[in-house]
Design a protein around this nucleic acid. Structure first.
Lengths: 245, 245
DNA sequence: TTTTTATGTGTTTAATTTACACAATTAAAA
DNA sequence: TTTTAATTGTGTAAATTAAACACATAAAAA
Protein backbone atom coordinates (compact mmCIF):
# COMPACT_ATOMS: atom_id res chain seq x y z
CA UNK A 1 0.00 0.00 0.00
CA UNK A 2 1.41 3.34 -0.94
CA UNK A 3 1.25 6.39 1.20
CA UNK A 4 1.31 9.73 -0.54
CA UNK A 5 3.52 12.45 0.83
CA UNK A 6 1.11 15.31 0.66
CA UNK A 7 -0.89 14.44 3.70
CA UNK A 8 -3.91 16.50 4.47
CA UNK A 9 -5.01 16.16 8.04
CA UNK A 10 -7.33 18.12 10.21
CA UNK A 11 -5.41 20.32 12.59
CA UNK A 12 -8.04 20.15 15.25
CA UNK A 13 -6.85 18.88 18.57
CA UNK A 14 -9.33 18.45 21.34
CA UNK A 15 -9.42 17.15 24.79
CA UNK A 16 -10.86 13.74 25.38
CA UNK A 17 -14.60 13.20 25.13
CA UNK A 18 -15.56 16.18 23.08
CA UNK A 19 -18.02 16.43 20.26
CA UNK A 20 -16.96 14.17 17.44
CA UNK A 21 -16.83 16.87 14.80
CA UNK A 22 -13.75 18.44 16.28
CA UNK A 23 -11.67 15.27 16.50
CA UNK A 24 -8.78 14.34 14.21
CA UNK A 25 -9.57 11.93 11.44
CA UNK A 26 -7.09 9.46 10.07
CA UNK A 27 -6.51 7.16 7.14
CA UNK A 28 -7.18 3.58 8.07
CA UNK A 29 -5.45 0.91 6.05
CA UNK A 30 -5.69 -2.85 6.06
CA UNK A 31 -2.65 -5.02 5.32
CA UNK A 32 -2.96 -8.73 4.67
CA UNK A 33 -0.51 -11.42 5.62
CA UNK A 34 -1.43 -14.21 3.21
CA UNK A 35 -0.24 -17.63 4.25
CA UNK A 36 -0.19 -20.41 1.72
CA UNK A 37 0.85 -24.04 1.80
CA UNK A 38 1.99 -25.98 -1.24
CA UNK A 39 1.89 -29.46 0.36
CA UNK A 40 5.46 -29.00 1.58
CA UNK A 41 6.20 -25.50 2.81
CA UNK A 42 4.40 -22.64 4.45
CA UNK A 43 4.69 -19.48 2.40
CA UNK A 44 3.60 -15.87 2.34
CA UNK A 45 2.46 -13.85 -0.64
CA UNK A 46 4.20 -10.51 -1.19
CA UNK A 47 4.10 -7.88 -3.89
CA UNK A 48 6.80 -5.65 -5.26
CA UNK A 49 5.85 -2.01 -5.18
CA UNK A 50 5.95 -0.36 -8.58
CA UNK A 51 5.41 3.15 -7.29
CA UNK A 52 6.91 5.63 -4.88
CA UNK A 53 7.71 5.82 -2.07
CA UNK A 54 9.67 2.66 -1.45
CA UNK A 55 9.33 1.70 -5.10
CA UNK A 56 10.85 -1.69 -5.85
CA UNK A 57 10.59 -2.92 -2.30
CA UNK A 58 8.54 -5.87 -1.19
CA UNK A 59 5.35 -5.32 0.74
CA UNK A 60 2.23 -6.93 2.04
CA UNK A 61 -0.87 -6.28 0.03
CA UNK A 62 -3.05 -3.58 1.44
CA UNK A 63 -5.64 -0.95 0.84
CA UNK A 64 -7.74 1.63 2.60
CA UNK A 65 -10.94 1.24 4.51
CA UNK A 66 -13.90 2.74 2.70
CA UNK A 67 -16.72 4.58 4.35
CA UNK A 68 -19.37 1.98 3.72
CA UNK A 69 -17.55 -1.17 4.75
CA UNK A 70 -16.16 -2.61 7.95
CA UNK A 71 -12.60 -3.83 8.36
CA UNK A 72 -13.36 -7.49 7.66
CA UNK A 73 -14.99 -6.45 4.42
CA UNK A 74 -12.08 -4.20 3.52
CA UNK A 75 -9.60 -7.01 4.12
CA UNK A 76 -11.71 -9.38 2.05
CA UNK A 77 -11.94 -6.86 -0.74
CA UNK A 78 -8.21 -6.21 -0.76
CA UNK A 79 -7.47 -9.92 -0.87
CA UNK A 80 -9.97 -10.43 -3.64
CA UNK A 81 -8.47 -7.61 -5.66
CA UNK A 82 -5.07 -9.27 -5.68
CA UNK A 83 -5.98 -12.91 -5.96
CA UNK A 84 -9.50 -13.02 -7.27
CA UNK A 85 -10.30 -15.35 -4.41
CA UNK A 86 -13.26 -15.19 -2.10
CA UNK A 87 -14.44 -17.38 0.77
CA UNK A 88 -11.02 -17.25 2.34
CA UNK A 89 -10.29 -17.66 6.04
CA UNK A 90 -9.29 -14.26 7.41
CA UNK A 91 -8.76 -13.01 10.90
CA UNK A 92 -7.94 -9.63 12.34
CA UNK A 93 -4.47 -9.63 13.85
CA UNK A 94 -3.46 -6.30 15.36
CA UNK A 95 -3.62 -2.58 14.71
CA UNK A 96 -0.39 -0.70 14.05
CA UNK A 97 -0.24 2.98 14.79
CA UNK A 98 3.29 4.25 15.25
CA UNK A 99 3.18 7.93 14.36
CA UNK A 100 5.81 7.74 11.65
CA UNK A 101 5.25 4.15 10.60
CA UNK A 102 4.43 5.36 7.11
CA UNK A 103 6.76 8.15 6.00
CA UNK A 104 4.22 9.46 3.53
CA UNK A 105 1.28 10.20 5.75
CA UNK A 106 -0.13 9.40 9.16
CA UNK A 107 -1.78 6.07 8.59
CA UNK A 108 -3.05 3.48 10.99
CA UNK A 109 -3.02 -0.05 9.67
CA UNK A 110 -5.13 -2.97 10.77
CA UNK A 111 -3.32 -6.20 9.91
CA UNK A 112 -5.24 -9.30 8.88
CA UNK A 113 -3.98 -12.73 8.08
CA UNK A 114 -5.45 -15.08 5.51
CA UNK A 115 -5.01 -18.80 4.93
CA UNK A 116 -5.21 -20.32 1.49
CA UNK A 117 -4.25 -23.54 -0.19
CA UNK A 118 -1.75 -22.67 -2.89
CA UNK A 119 -2.32 -25.65 -5.14
CA UNK A 120 -6.10 -25.85 -5.10
CA UNK A 121 -6.45 -22.19 -5.94
CA UNK A 122 -4.58 -21.96 -9.19
CA UNK A 123 -5.31 -18.27 -9.45
CA UNK A 124 -3.28 -16.31 -11.94
CA UNK A 125 -2.92 -13.39 -9.63
CA UNK A 126 0.42 -14.58 -8.40
CA UNK A 127 1.70 -15.11 -11.93
CA UNK A 128 1.99 -11.39 -12.38
CA UNK A 129 5.54 -10.40 -11.81
CA UNK A 130 4.81 -8.05 -8.96
CA UNK A 131 3.52 -10.84 -6.69
CA UNK A 132 5.43 -13.88 -5.42
CA UNK A 133 5.24 -16.61 -2.83
CA UNK A 134 8.13 -16.67 -0.38
CA UNK A 135 9.14 -19.37 2.01
CA UNK A 136 8.78 -18.01 5.51
CA UNK A 137 12.49 -17.97 6.20
CA UNK A 138 13.31 -16.46 2.82
CA UNK A 139 11.00 -13.47 3.04
CA UNK A 140 12.80 -10.25 2.12
CA UNK A 141 12.99 -7.04 4.05
CA UNK A 142 9.62 -5.32 3.78
CA UNK A 143 8.47 -1.74 3.91
CA UNK A 144 7.25 0.03 7.03
CA UNK A 145 6.39 -2.33 9.89
CA UNK A 146 5.34 -5.20 7.65
CA UNK A 147 8.03 -7.56 8.93
CA UNK A 148 6.76 -6.98 12.43
CA UNK A 149 3.25 -7.80 11.24
CA UNK A 150 4.46 -11.06 9.77
CA UNK A 151 6.20 -12.05 12.98
CA UNK A 152 3.02 -11.47 14.91
CA UNK A 153 0.97 -13.31 12.31
CA UNK A 154 3.22 -16.35 12.52
CA UNK A 155 2.94 -16.42 16.25
CA UNK A 156 -0.86 -16.08 16.07
CA UNK A 157 -1.02 -18.81 13.44
CA UNK A 158 1.03 -21.12 15.64
CA UNK A 159 -1.32 -20.61 18.53
CA UNK A 160 -4.44 -20.97 16.39
CA UNK A 161 -3.18 -24.13 14.74
CA UNK A 162 -2.82 -25.77 18.14
CA UNK A 163 -6.31 -24.88 19.31
CA UNK A 164 -8.56 -24.54 16.28
CA UNK A 165 -9.04 -26.63 13.13
CA UNK A 166 -7.75 -23.88 10.85
CA UNK A 167 -4.93 -25.92 9.37
CA UNK A 168 -7.39 -27.44 6.93
CA UNK A 169 -7.84 -24.01 5.36
CA UNK A 170 -4.30 -24.38 4.06
CA UNK A 171 -4.81 -27.84 2.58
CA UNK A 172 -6.83 -29.14 -0.34
CA UNK A 173 -10.07 -30.82 0.58
CA UNK A 174 -8.41 -34.22 0.37
CA UNK A 175 -4.99 -34.58 1.92
CA UNK A 176 -2.67 -37.25 3.24
CA UNK A 177 -1.58 -37.59 6.84
CA UNK A 178 1.94 -36.75 5.80
CA UNK A 179 0.77 -33.50 4.22
CA UNK A 180 -1.09 -32.61 7.36
CA UNK A 181 1.98 -33.35 9.43
CA UNK A 182 4.18 -31.35 7.04
CA UNK A 183 1.79 -28.46 7.46
CA UNK A 184 1.99 -28.53 11.23
CA UNK A 185 5.74 -28.93 11.14
CA UNK A 186 5.95 -25.88 8.90
CA UNK A 187 3.66 -23.82 11.07
CA UNK A 188 5.29 -24.79 14.34
CA UNK A 189 8.76 -24.83 12.80
CA UNK A 190 9.69 -28.12 14.43
CA UNK A 191 9.70 -31.82 13.69
CA UNK A 192 6.89 -33.95 15.03
CA UNK A 193 6.85 -37.66 15.72
CA UNK A 194 4.83 -39.37 13.01
CA UNK A 195 3.10 -41.94 15.19
CA UNK A 196 2.31 -39.54 18.01
CA UNK A 197 0.98 -37.02 15.52
CA UNK A 198 -1.32 -39.52 13.83
CA UNK A 199 -2.51 -40.93 17.14
CA UNK A 200 -3.31 -37.46 18.35
CA UNK A 201 -5.14 -36.45 15.20
CA UNK A 202 -7.13 -39.65 15.17
CA UNK A 203 -8.08 -39.28 18.81
CA UNK A 204 -9.76 -35.97 17.91
CA UNK A 205 -12.08 -37.95 15.65
CA UNK A 206 -12.84 -35.23 13.11
CA UNK A 207 -11.16 -36.69 10.02
CA UNK A 208 -12.68 -39.15 7.58
CA UNK A 209 -10.34 -41.64 5.97
CA UNK A 210 -11.25 -42.23 2.32
CA UNK A 211 -10.76 -45.44 0.36
CA UNK A 212 -8.95 -43.32 -2.18
CA UNK A 213 -5.18 -43.08 -2.24
CA UNK A 214 -2.84 -40.36 -3.43
CA UNK A 215 -0.47 -42.34 -5.68
CA UNK A 216 1.69 -39.40 -6.66
CA UNK A 217 3.34 -39.22 -3.33
CA UNK A 218 4.98 -42.62 -3.08
CA UNK A 219 5.08 -46.02 -4.71
CA UNK A 220 2.85 -47.40 -2.04
CA UNK A 221 0.42 -44.49 -2.16
CA UNK A 222 -1.05 -42.76 0.85
CA UNK A 223 -4.64 -42.72 2.02
CA UNK A 224 -6.53 -39.48 1.61
CA UNK A 225 -8.47 -37.86 4.42
CA UNK A 226 -11.03 -35.08 4.61
CA UNK A 227 -11.88 -32.84 7.54
CA UNK A 228 -15.46 -33.47 8.62
CA UNK A 229 -16.52 -29.96 9.46
CA UNK A 230 -20.09 -30.88 10.31
CA UNK A 231 -18.91 -33.51 12.75
CA UNK A 232 -16.48 -31.06 14.32
CA UNK A 233 -19.15 -28.41 14.75
CA UNK A 234 -21.58 -30.91 16.16
CA UNK A 235 -19.03 -32.02 18.72
CA UNK A 236 -18.32 -28.43 19.70
CA UNK A 237 -22.01 -27.68 19.98
CA UNK A 238 -23.11 -30.78 21.82
CA UNK A 239 -20.13 -31.87 23.87
CA UNK A 240 -18.21 -28.64 24.31
CA UNK A 241 -15.44 -30.32 22.37
CA UNK A 242 -12.35 -28.27 21.72
CA UNK A 243 -9.74 -29.01 19.12
CA UNK A 244 -6.40 -29.29 20.88
CA UNK A 245 -3.39 -30.68 19.17
CA UNK B 1 -14.17 -16.23 -9.49
CA UNK B 2 -12.55 -13.22 -11.06
CA UNK B 3 -8.94 -13.53 -12.04
CA UNK B 4 -7.13 -10.23 -12.25
CA UNK B 5 -4.60 -9.67 -15.00
CA UNK B 6 -1.39 -7.86 -14.47
CA UNK B 7 -2.70 -4.70 -16.04
CA UNK B 8 -5.77 -4.71 -13.87
CA UNK B 9 -3.81 -5.07 -10.66
CA UNK B 10 -1.44 -2.28 -11.63
CA UNK B 11 -4.35 -0.07 -12.48
CA UNK B 12 -5.91 -0.66 -9.10
CA UNK B 13 -2.75 0.29 -7.34
CA UNK B 14 -2.19 3.36 -9.45
CA UNK B 15 -5.73 4.43 -8.94
CA UNK B 16 -5.16 4.23 -5.26
CA UNK B 17 -1.99 6.26 -5.60
CA UNK B 18 -3.42 8.93 -7.84
CA UNK B 19 -6.52 9.55 -5.85
CA UNK B 20 -5.21 9.20 -2.34
CA UNK B 21 -6.79 12.49 -1.41
CA UNK B 22 -10.11 10.87 -1.90
CA UNK B 23 -9.51 7.99 0.46
CA UNK B 24 -12.06 8.08 3.21
CA UNK B 25 -10.86 9.22 6.59
CA UNK B 26 -12.41 8.04 9.80
CA UNK B 27 -12.49 8.84 13.48
CA UNK B 28 -10.37 6.46 15.46
CA UNK B 29 -11.38 5.95 19.07
CA UNK B 30 -9.87 3.95 21.89
CA UNK B 31 -12.07 2.30 24.48
CA UNK B 32 -10.65 0.83 27.66
CA UNK B 33 -11.88 -2.19 29.51
CA UNK B 34 -10.49 -1.61 32.99
CA UNK B 35 -10.29 -4.70 35.15
CA UNK B 36 -9.83 -4.34 38.86
CA UNK B 37 -9.58 -6.76 41.76
CA UNK B 38 -10.49 -5.90 45.33
CA UNK B 39 -9.00 -9.03 46.94
CA UNK B 40 -12.27 -10.88 46.41
CA UNK B 41 -13.93 -10.10 43.10
CA UNK B 42 -12.93 -9.16 39.61
CA UNK B 43 -14.57 -5.92 38.53
CA UNK B 44 -14.76 -3.52 35.62
CA UNK B 45 -14.83 0.25 35.75
CA UNK B 46 -17.63 1.95 33.82
CA UNK B 47 -18.77 5.53 33.45
CA UNK B 48 -22.14 7.07 32.87
CA UNK B 49 -21.94 9.18 29.73
CA UNK B 50 -22.54 12.88 30.25
CA UNK B 51 -22.67 13.80 26.58
CA UNK B 52 -24.55 12.86 23.46
CA UNK B 53 -25.18 10.49 21.89
CA UNK B 54 -26.43 7.94 24.40
CA UNK B 55 -26.08 10.43 27.24
CA UNK B 56 -26.87 8.87 30.60
CA UNK B 57 -26.05 5.33 29.54
CA UNK B 58 -23.20 3.27 30.91
CA UNK B 59 -20.11 3.01 28.82
CA UNK B 60 -16.47 2.10 28.77
CA UNK B 61 -14.14 5.02 29.06
CA UNK B 62 -12.82 6.16 25.76
CA UNK B 63 -11.41 8.95 23.71
CA UNK B 64 -10.08 9.72 20.28
CA UNK B 65 -6.66 9.15 18.84
CA UNK B 66 -4.74 12.36 18.34
CA UNK B 67 -2.50 12.80 15.37
CA UNK B 68 0.73 13.00 17.33
CA UNK B 69 0.34 9.87 19.41
CA UNK B 70 0.06 6.16 18.76
CA UNK B 71 -2.75 3.98 20.03
CA UNK B 72 -0.93 2.72 23.11
CA UNK B 73 -0.28 6.31 24.09
CA UNK B 74 -3.89 7.28 23.43
CA UNK B 75 -5.15 4.43 25.59
CA UNK B 76 -2.71 5.38 28.34
CA UNK B 77 -3.77 8.99 28.14
CA UNK B 78 -7.46 8.14 28.28
CA UNK B 79 -6.92 5.92 31.29
CA UNK B 80 -4.82 8.55 33.00
CA UNK B 81 -7.43 11.23 32.36
CA UNK B 82 -10.08 9.23 34.10
CA UNK B 83 -8.14 7.68 36.92
CA UNK B 84 -5.02 9.75 37.34
CA UNK B 85 -3.06 6.52 37.18
CA UNK B 86 0.02 5.80 35.16
CA UNK B 87 2.28 2.76 34.83
CA UNK B 88 -0.70 0.54 34.31
CA UNK B 89 -0.65 -2.73 32.41
CA UNK B 90 -2.49 -2.22 29.13
CA UNK B 91 -2.84 -4.35 26.08
CA UNK B 92 -4.50 -3.84 22.72
CA UNK B 93 -7.48 -6.14 22.33
CA UNK B 94 -9.28 -5.77 19.03
CA UNK B 95 -10.49 -3.15 16.57
CA UNK B 96 -14.22 -2.70 16.08
CA UNK B 97 -15.46 -1.26 12.84
CA UNK B 98 -19.10 -2.06 12.16
CA UNK B 99 -20.35 0.69 9.88
CA UNK B 100 -23.13 1.86 12.15
CA UNK B 101 -21.61 0.89 15.48
CA UNK B 102 -21.73 4.52 16.62
CA UNK B 103 -24.95 6.26 15.59
CA UNK B 104 -23.32 9.65 15.90
CA UNK B 105 -20.65 9.26 13.26
CA UNK B 106 -18.59 6.63 11.49
CA UNK B 107 -16.10 5.69 14.15
CA UNK B 108 -13.67 2.82 14.40
CA UNK B 109 -12.71 1.87 17.91
CA UNK B 110 -9.59 0.12 19.10
CA UNK B 111 -10.32 -1.63 22.39
CA UNK B 112 -7.67 -1.92 25.08
CA UNK B 113 -7.83 -3.64 28.41
CA UNK B 114 -6.10 -2.51 31.57
CA UNK B 115 -5.37 -4.28 34.85
CA UNK B 116 -5.24 -2.43 38.14
CA UNK B 117 -5.34 -3.25 41.80
CA UNK B 118 -8.41 -1.53 43.22
CA UNK B 119 -7.26 -1.24 46.81
CA UNK B 120 -3.70 -0.10 46.30
CA UNK B 121 -4.72 2.69 43.96
CA UNK B 122 -7.03 4.86 45.95
CA UNK B 123 -7.39 7.21 43.03
CA UNK B 124 -9.93 9.98 43.10
CA UNK B 125 -10.62 9.69 39.43
CA UNK B 126 -13.49 7.32 39.79
CA UNK B 127 -15.47 9.99 41.57
CA UNK B 128 -15.72 12.03 38.40
CA UNK B 129 -17.95 11.27 35.48
CA UNK B 130 -20.13 8.95 37.51
CA UNK B 131 -17.59 6.18 37.37
CA UNK B 132 -18.30 2.96 39.23
CA UNK B 133 -16.86 -0.49 39.70
CA UNK B 134 -19.14 -3.33 38.67
CA UNK B 135 -18.81 -7.00 39.39
CA UNK B 136 -18.38 -8.79 36.11
CA UNK B 137 -21.74 -10.50 36.25
CA UNK B 138 -23.53 -7.33 37.34
CA UNK B 139 -22.34 -5.07 34.56
CA UNK B 140 -25.21 -3.14 32.98
CA UNK B 141 -26.15 -2.92 29.34
CA UNK B 142 -23.61 -0.67 27.64
CA UNK B 143 -23.68 1.57 24.62
CA UNK B 144 -22.65 0.53 21.13
CA UNK B 145 -20.64 -2.68 21.03
CA UNK B 146 -19.06 -2.21 24.44
CA UNK B 147 -20.59 -5.38 25.89
CA UNK B 148 -19.02 -7.33 23.05
CA UNK B 149 -15.69 -5.70 23.85
CA UNK B 150 -15.96 -6.79 27.44
CA UNK B 151 -16.73 -10.37 26.46
CA UNK B 152 -13.66 -10.47 24.29
CA UNK B 153 -11.57 -8.82 26.99
CA UNK B 154 -12.60 -11.42 29.54
CA UNK B 155 -11.72 -14.20 27.21
CA UNK B 156 -8.34 -12.61 26.46
CA UNK B 157 -7.71 -12.07 30.16
CA UNK B 158 -8.49 -15.71 30.86
CA UNK B 159 -5.99 -16.84 28.27
CA UNK B 160 -3.32 -14.38 29.38
CA UNK B 161 -3.72 -15.30 33.02
CA UNK B 162 -2.95 -18.91 32.18
CA UNK B 163 0.18 -18.14 30.21
CA UNK B 164 1.66 -14.91 31.50
CA UNK B 165 2.30 -13.53 34.98
CA UNK B 166 -0.19 -10.69 34.55
CA UNK B 167 -2.37 -11.64 37.49
CA UNK B 168 0.03 -9.83 39.78
CA UNK B 169 -0.94 -6.55 38.10
CA UNK B 170 -4.32 -6.95 39.77
CA UNK B 171 -2.93 -7.59 43.25
CA UNK B 172 -1.09 -5.43 45.75
CA UNK B 173 2.62 -6.00 45.92
CA UNK B 174 2.17 -8.31 48.91
CA UNK B 175 -0.63 -10.83 48.75
CA UNK B 176 -1.66 -14.10 50.31
CA UNK B 177 -1.97 -17.38 48.48
CA UNK B 178 -5.69 -17.29 49.07
CA UNK B 179 -5.95 -13.88 47.43
CA UNK B 180 -4.02 -15.13 44.45
CA UNK B 181 -6.28 -18.14 44.21
CA UNK B 182 -9.38 -15.94 44.56
CA UNK B 183 -8.08 -13.84 41.72
CA UNK B 184 -7.61 -16.82 39.44
CA UNK B 185 -10.98 -18.21 40.38
CA UNK B 186 -12.56 -14.87 39.52
CA UNK B 187 -10.78 -14.61 36.22
CA UNK B 188 -11.43 -18.18 35.16
CA UNK B 189 -14.88 -18.19 36.71
CA UNK B 190 -14.39 -21.58 38.33
CA UNK B 191 -13.29 -23.09 41.60
CA UNK B 192 -9.74 -24.36 41.92
CA UNK B 193 -8.35 -26.94 44.30
CA UNK B 194 -6.34 -25.19 47.00
CA UNK B 195 -3.51 -27.69 47.26
CA UNK B 196 -3.14 -28.21 43.54
CA UNK B 197 -3.14 -24.47 42.98
CA UNK B 198 -0.45 -23.84 45.56
CA UNK B 199 1.67 -26.75 44.35
CA UNK B 200 1.45 -25.44 40.82
CA UNK B 201 2.30 -21.87 41.75
CA UNK B 202 5.21 -23.00 43.87
CA UNK B 203 6.55 -25.22 41.13
CA UNK B 204 6.86 -22.12 38.94
CA UNK B 205 9.32 -20.74 41.49
CA UNK B 206 8.69 -17.05 40.91
CA UNK B 207 7.13 -16.08 44.23
CA UNK B 208 8.97 -15.10 47.39
CA UNK B 209 7.38 -16.07 50.69
CA UNK B 210 7.83 -13.33 53.28
CA UNK B 211 8.13 -13.81 57.04
CA UNK B 212 5.31 -11.32 57.32
CA UNK B 213 1.73 -12.41 57.81
CA UNK B 214 -1.55 -10.78 56.89
CA UNK B 215 -3.44 -10.97 60.20
CA UNK B 216 -6.60 -9.31 58.93
CA UNK B 217 -7.63 -12.29 56.96
CA UNK B 218 -7.97 -14.93 59.66
CA UNK B 219 -7.18 -15.62 63.29
CA UNK B 220 -4.22 -17.68 62.27
CA UNK B 221 -2.98 -15.16 59.74
CA UNK B 222 -1.68 -15.95 56.28
CA UNK B 223 1.80 -15.61 54.93
CA UNK B 224 2.40 -12.85 52.42
CA UNK B 225 4.11 -13.40 49.09
CA UNK B 226 5.59 -11.14 46.46
CA UNK B 227 6.10 -11.81 42.77
CA UNK B 228 9.81 -11.79 41.99
CA UNK B 229 9.76 -10.09 38.61
CA UNK B 230 13.53 -10.06 38.20
CA UNK B 231 13.70 -13.78 38.84
CA UNK B 232 10.89 -14.41 36.40
CA UNK B 233 12.55 -12.36 33.68
CA UNK B 234 15.88 -14.01 34.29
CA UNK B 235 14.29 -17.43 33.92
CA UNK B 236 12.59 -16.39 30.70
CA UNK B 237 15.80 -14.94 29.36
CA UNK B 238 18.17 -17.70 30.37
CA UNK B 239 16.12 -20.88 30.37
CA UNK B 240 13.31 -20.06 27.97
CA UNK B 241 10.99 -20.44 30.92
CA UNK B 242 7.33 -19.85 30.28
CA UNK B 243 4.73 -19.15 32.91
CA UNK B 244 2.02 -21.77 32.54
CA UNK B 245 -0.61 -22.27 35.15
C1' DT C 1 14.55 -60.11 -8.77
C1' DT C 2 16.35 -56.52 -6.15
C1' DT C 3 16.35 -51.88 -4.76
C1' DT C 4 14.29 -47.84 -3.35
C1' DT C 5 11.16 -44.91 -0.96
C1' DA C 6 7.52 -43.51 1.69
C1' DT C 7 3.47 -45.45 4.26
C1' DG C 8 1.30 -47.48 8.30
C1' DT C 9 1.02 -49.18 12.71
C1' DG C 10 1.41 -50.04 19.22
C1' DT C 11 3.55 -50.27 23.37
C1' DT C 12 6.19 -48.81 27.18
C1' DT C 13 7.81 -45.12 30.03
C1' DA C 14 7.79 -40.60 31.83
C1' DA C 15 5.48 -36.49 33.08
C1' DT C 16 1.64 -34.04 34.37
C1' DT C 17 -2.77 -33.40 36.28
C1' DT C 18 -6.36 -34.50 39.30
C1' DA C 19 -8.58 -36.05 43.46
C1' DC C 20 -8.71 -35.95 48.06
C1' DA C 21 -8.58 -34.91 54.25
C1' DC C 22 -6.94 -33.42 58.41
C1' DA C 23 -4.02 -30.94 61.80
C1' DA C 24 -2.53 -26.14 63.31
C1' DT C 25 -3.43 -21.50 64.82
C1' DT C 26 -5.68 -18.13 67.49
C1' DA C 27 -9.33 -14.71 68.33
C1' DA C 28 -13.80 -14.64 70.11
C1' DA C 29 -17.35 -16.62 72.72
C1' DA C 30 -18.96 -19.22 76.44
C1' DT D 1 -10.02 -21.06 81.37
C1' DT D 2 -12.02 -23.81 77.95
C1' DT D 3 -14.52 -24.31 73.85
C1' DT D 4 -15.85 -22.84 69.39
C1' DA D 5 -15.27 -21.15 64.89
C1' DA D 6 -12.87 -19.83 60.88
C1' DT D 7 -9.14 -20.13 57.91
C1' DT D 8 -4.40 -21.59 56.88
C1' DG D 9 -1.18 -25.05 55.50
C1' DT D 10 0.38 -29.31 53.92
C1' DG D 11 1.35 -34.65 50.71
C1' DT D 12 0.29 -38.77 48.29
C1' DA D 13 -1.92 -41.89 45.26
C1' DA D 14 -4.45 -42.57 40.94
C1' DA D 15 -5.55 -41.26 36.42
C1' DT D 16 -4.52 -39.09 32.34
C1' DT D 17 -1.65 -37.35 28.87
C1' DA D 18 2.64 -36.86 26.42
C1' DA D 19 6.90 -38.74 24.73
C1' DA D 20 10.03 -42.10 23.05
C1' DC D 21 10.76 -45.54 20.07
C1' DA D 22 11.36 -49.62 15.15
C1' DC D 23 10.00 -52.49 11.72
C1' DA D 24 7.05 -54.62 8.15
C1' DT D 25 4.45 -53.34 3.81
C1' DA D 26 3.52 -51.90 -0.80
C1' DA D 27 4.76 -51.15 -5.44
C1' DA D 28 7.26 -48.75 -8.94
C1' DA D 29 11.79 -48.48 -10.88
C1' DA D 30 16.14 -50.40 -11.86
Amino acid sequence: MEIPKEAKLSKDINTQLNFYQKEDQVLLAVDCIIFGFDKTNLKILLIKRNFEPEKGKWSLIGGFLKKNENLDQAATRVLNTLTGLSDIYMEQLYTYSKVDRDPGQRTISVAYFALIDVDSHQFDGIQIDSARWFDLDEAPELIFDHNEMIRKAISRLQRRAMTMPIGFELLPEKFTMRQLQNLYESILDKKLDKRNFINKINSLDVLVKLDEKDMTVSRKGAYLYVFDKEKYEKKVEEDGFSFKL
